[in-house]
Amino acid sequence: MKILALFFFFLNLFLFVLFTALTIIRFTLYPHTWISILHHTTLSLYMCCFPMGATTLINVAVEVINVDYGFGGPGFLYFIWAVWWVDVAISMLCCWGVVHIMTTTHTHSLQAMTAAWLLPVVTLTVAASSGGVLARALEQYSPLKALISVAVAVFLVTVGLTLALMIITIYLLRLIVHGLPPGHKILSVFLPLGPTAQSGYAILLIGQNFKSLLPLDHGTSEFLRSGSAGETINTVCVCIAFLLWSLAVMCIVFALLGIHDSVRQTRFPFMLPFWGLVFPNGVFANLTINLSVTFDSSFFRVLGAIYAIATLLVWIFVASRTVALVYDRTIFVESMDDDNSTAKHEPLPSSATSMAG
């Protein structure tokens, strides 16, 4: 499993660096595409996947490469910690910045809404989970830095989850009033798994870290020096994590029912939005497996393993289809069209569409 994790890590790292470099080159050669993408009601949301992609690298770099294999020691861990702070800053910029652009620049309607509205805010919950992973590794070197990381993670997951629950409520209203999203947009029904399951994982890690870091043996804070504070916080966090897991299960049932109903009525070809099936289902499997350890539950352990394998199979399917489209170059002319993709400013050039996709 560790070898498989390393394979995906280096593949992930290669693709992340490659497409980051290509994006920088594109924005340098065609600076107008940056503004055009920001004004596009769909592509501006998917741009927020950038910091979330970085957190997958951070988590594996810490847990597998640094902790399990001991690579780099504390120096490498502090380097990853610094990268995490940059990722936190970008995540905040995506959350507040893109949501602000949505309210001031875009033209949205309830009927055209999809769960992609969650992408700007889920960046915070994803960054919070990496904070919990880092804090667990930092504790042996600097309990203070670990505590700071956990405190920032609490802030991030609080803001991200609060905004996400607001948007999920609006999304449910949209489904009840206007029905399921048409065509390939139905694939977005899995996106609510992102903030619910990932927030549950982040909160679970937060509780474990507070249990380990508290009580403090210095300072004058009665709360932080309390012998029961860590245990209490951990108990509350486990309960919240299970609550969010239950909410994620509800989202899965609605998503499967929605896709089943949509596929019965219409067919649509493979396209880039299929990648939206991987991350939300992956984080649900991750939360389920971690809950199996917390509860020492065979049910959660087996369910998490089955769901993780299913997610891997989905990834293999989507990746193979993507490679095929790259080979015949059709993926580069595909347009992530959106019925509500008109902005109050200039339209999006075709070159920007292919790049952002």
Rank of each mutant, 00 (worst) to 15 (best):
T56N: 07
A54T: 00
V99L: 13
L11A: 09
T125Q: 08
I25K: 15
V88T: 15
M271N: 08
L134A: 11
N12W: 04
V154K: 05
S341V: 01
R26E: 13
A356E: 13
I167T: 12
S36Y: 01
K2W: 00
S149P: 01
L118V: 05
G183E: 11
L119K: 07
V333R: 11
L214D: 01
T23V: 04
I65Y: 01
V177A: 08
V177T: 05
M113D: 07
T104E: 14
F279P: 00
G70E: 03
L22E: 14
R329M: 08
L161C: 09
H260M: 13
F14C: 03
L163C: 07
M52H: 10
I233N: 04
T114Y: 02
A308M: 13
V62Y: 00
D87H: 03
P269C: 12
F7G: 00
I316S: 02
L165F: 01
S149C: 11
V99Y: 10
F279S: 07
I25F: 15
N281C: 09
S354A: 12
L156D: 11
G207Y: 02
W245Q: 11
V236N: 06
F279Y: 09
F268Q: 06
S335W: 03
L11Q: 08
V98F: 06
A135Q: 06
F295K: 08
I24F: 13
N234M: 14
T353L: 04
L77T: 08
L204R: 02
H40L: 06
T56A: 10
L4R: 00
H260S: 13
K185E: 15
W84L: 10
S221G: 15
I25N: 15
V189D: 07
G132F: 00
R26G: 05
C49M: 13
I252Y: 07
G200C: 03
W96K: 09
V283K: 04
M113A: 09
A21K: 08
A324M: 04
V98T: 06
I289F: 03
R267D: 13
N286L: 10
I65V: 06
P269W: 04
T169Y: 14
T288M: 06
A310P: 01
V64T: 09
Q208V: 03
H108N: 07
D328R: 08
I168S: 10
V238I: 12
L138E: 00
F254A: 10
P269E: 15
I24L: 13
I206N: 09
F9H: 03
F76A: 08
L163Q: 08
L243V: 02
S129H: 07
L291N: 06
T294P: 01
T294M: 13
M355V: 08
A116C: 09
T114N: 12
V98R: 05
M52F: 06
L6Y: 04
Y327W: 12
L214Y: 00
P182Q: 07
T105L: 05
L147I: 02
F270T: 04
A153W: 01
T311Y: 02
S354Q: 11
A255Y: 01
L312P: 00
A21V: 03
G131W: 03
L43T: 05
A248S: 12
R301Q: 15
G207I: 02
Q111E: 15
V236R: 07
G73S: 12
G75V: 02
V236M: 09
L312I: 01
G282P: 00
A137M: 14
I24S: 13
Y46T: 04
H106D: 14
S228K: 15
L144G: 13
V99M: 15
E231G: 04
W96F: 12
D296N: 06
F223P: 07
W117P: 06
C94Q: 05
T311D: 08
